[in-house]
């Protein structure tokens, strides 16, 4: 089945990103297609590669990047929500005159339409948030 996932909270403060990760991993292992993981609200903070948790803690951002790489996931960060919260890719940083970008590997920044489009294309859309 074709499943879309919406992640509405950032890493660590809420369990939402962990739950979404475990759900996505289980779905992939069962042979389902994860059409897209869309990061919205504070969920965009899952996409900063500047995250550096203590060594004995999980690295939520890297974990998404690795899963994304393994399964070629489409992990989309909402541009409007990202701009509010300072998540930028190289193009956006240049456009805004910022000294550097911080987006982690495997994530891409795009519009909110990608969420609606996932709702249209997927058999199911599951939201993880607070």
């Amino acid at each position: 089945m074709k499943i879309g996932v919406l992640v509405s909270e950032g890493p660590y403060t809420h369990q939402a990103s962990d739950s979404a990760y475990n759900f996505v991993k289980a779905a992939l292992e069962k042979g389902h297609e994860i059409y897209r993981v869309f990061f919205y609200h504070d969920g965009v903070n899952n996409a900063t590669r500047f995250t550096e948790p203590p060594r004995d803690d999980r690295n939520i951002v890297n974990r998404w990047s690795e899963l994304g790489k393994q399964y070629n996931l489409d992990m989309v960060v909402c541009i409007a929500a990202a701009q509010r919260r300072g998540i930028m890719d190289e193009n956006e940083a240049k456009r805004q005159g910022k000294s550097g970008d911080n987006i982690a590997e495997g994530f891409r920044i795009s519009g909110l339409g990608q969420l609606v489009e996932a709702g249209i294309q997927c058999d199911r859309l599951v939201t993880f948030g607070d």
């Binding site: 089945m1 499943i3 475990n22 759900f23 991993k25 289980a26 779905a27 292992e29 069962k30 389902h32 058999d123 199911r124 859309l125 599951v126 939201t127 993880f128 948030g129």
Partner: peptide
């Protein structure tokens, strides 16, 4: 478990969080 969570999602026609 999480696999069962996935099954619940696919077995029902829609879901609300």
């Amino acid at each position: 478990d999480y696999g069962g969570f996935v099954d619940l999602v696919t077995e029902h026609s829609n879901c609300q969080s």
